[in-house]
Simulated scan of single mutants.
Amino acid sequence: MRHVEHVMGTAVSIELADPLPAATKVGMIDQTVAWLHEVDRRFSTYKPHSEIRRLGRGDLTVAECSSDVREVLATCAELWRETDGFFDAYATGQLDPSGFVKGWSVEVASRWLAANGSSHHCLNAGGDIRARGCPSPGRQWRIGVRHPWQPDKLSWVVTGNDVAVATSGIYERGEHVIDPVRGRPATQLQSVTVVGPDLGRADAYATTAMAMGRTGLAWLARLDQAGYASAAVTADGRAYTSRSLPATALAA
């Protein structure tokens, strides 16, 4: 069963491949959709009454925020320290944890599905993907990573049975990733894909490497030791992959 929901400014597809009754799957999809809309209401940087906007204006204190917002802010602070400031929820000049929230929200949804009986599913939120189990018996999920200049082609195809894939790039939203250290848009990398066990972290790491620019390539290579593989394309068209990337194809 597959459902597509427009939420958080993107299309989110939910695919359940378990041999469960249709009514059970519908209920799981409804719960997942409700969660994603709740995340959008709390974390949207466009809705004036979201917790994030109210916190940024000073209408709320951190202590008054929901436990989800407090968790996200704590993780963003941890990521800021871990990345020497290159992952910064204030990089745009205002509070914006979007570089972590989308991946985190899908990871939370996937864990909920797994805990409630869905061992085989794939969630895709605008290219941030969390897959578990298999699409059919004996098969792995195949996740295409879009070519940064040719939208009808793929750069890589990532495979796996329990995998999170996050991609950050400037080919759709333009130069939206800010290098917080230099205070300017990051332009040296065209796209970065990170593959690992947790989609929130993978999402944040992809954003971090984009912000770092070409120096982010060496940083990505070191992430292999932490279980996060990667691939990147530079602005001048060079492609890089880390050693453990579970990719089965590379487009010409």
Rank of each mutant, 00 (worst) to 15 (best):
residue 10 T to Y: 10
residue 15 E to C: 05
residue 15 E to M: 02
residue 17 A to W: 06
residue 24 T to R: 03
residue 24 T to W: 03
residue 24 T to P: 02
residue 27 G to M: 11
residue 28 M to G: 08
residue 29 I to Y: 02
residue 29 I to N: 02
residue 30 D to N: 14
residue 34 A to T: 10
residue 35 W to Y: 06
residue 37 H to G: 07
residue 39 V to D: 08
residue 40 D to K: 10
residue 41 R to P: 00
residue 46 Y to R: 15
residue 48 P to G: 04
residue 48 P to T: 11
residue 49 H to R: 11
residue 54 R to G: 02
residue 54 R to Y: 10
residue 60 L to Q: 03
residue 66 S to Y: 03
residue 66 S to G: 08
residue 67 S to N: 01
residue 68 D to A: 10
residue 68 D to I: 01
residue 70 R to Y: 01
residue 71 E to Y: 14
residue 72 V to K: 07
residue 73 L to Q: 12
residue 76 C to G: 10
residue 79 L to K: 12
residue 79 L to M: 14
residue 82 E to G: 09
residue 85 G to D: 00
residue 86 F to P: 02
residue 88 D to N: 12
residue 91 A to C: 01
residue 93 G to L: 09
residue 94 Q to M: 12
residue 96 D to F: 03
residue 98 S to E: 13
residue 98 S to C: 09
residue 102 K to S: 11
residue 107 E to N: 08
residue 108 V to P: 04
residue 109 A to L: 06
residue 111 R to H: 03
residue 113 L to G: 01
residue 115 A to K: 06
residue 116 N to W: 09
residue 118 S to W: 04
residue 118 S to C: 14
residue 119 S to H: 12
residue 120 H to E: 05
residue 122 C to D: 00
residue 125 A to E: 15
residue 130 R to F: 05
residue 130 R to Y: 04
residue 133 G to C: 01
residue 136 S to D: 02
residue 139 R to M: 00
residue 145 V to G: 07
residue 153 K to V: 00
residue 155 S to Y: 01
residue 156 W to G: 11
residue 159 T to S: 12
residue 159 T to K: 10
residue 166 A to D: 05
residue 168 S to H: 05
residue 172 E to T: 09
residue 173 R to Y: 13
residue 174 G to T: 13
residue 176 H to Y: 04
residue 177 V to W: 01
residue 178 I to L: 07
residue 178 I to N: 02
residue 178 I to D: 00
residue 178 I to S: 02
residue 179 D to C: 12
residue 180 P to E: 06
residue 181 V to T: 07
residue 184 R to E: 12
residue 184 R to G: 10
residue 188 Q to Y: 14
residue 190 Q to C: 13
residue 198 D to F: 01
residue 202 A to N: 12
residue 202 A to I: 05
residue 204 A to H: 08
residue 204 A to V: 11
residue 207 T to V: 02
residue 218 A to Q: 12
residue 221 A to M: 08
residue 222 R to Y: 01
residue 222 R to N: 04
residue 222 R to T: 05
residue 225 Q to M: 08
residue 225 Q to F: 03
residue 225 Q to L: 12
residue 228 Y to R: 04
residue 228 Y to G: 11
residue 230 S to M: 11
residue 232 A to C: 14
residue 232 A to P: 13
residue 234 T to Y: 15
residue 235 A to M: 07
residue 236 D to V: 06
residue 241 T to S: 09
residue 242 S to T: 15
residue 242 S to E: 08
residue 242 S to P: 12
residue 243 R to Y: 11
residue 244 S to G: 13
residue 246 P to E: 13
residue 248 T to P: 06
residue 249 A to W: 14
residue 250 L to M: 13
residue 251 A to D: 14
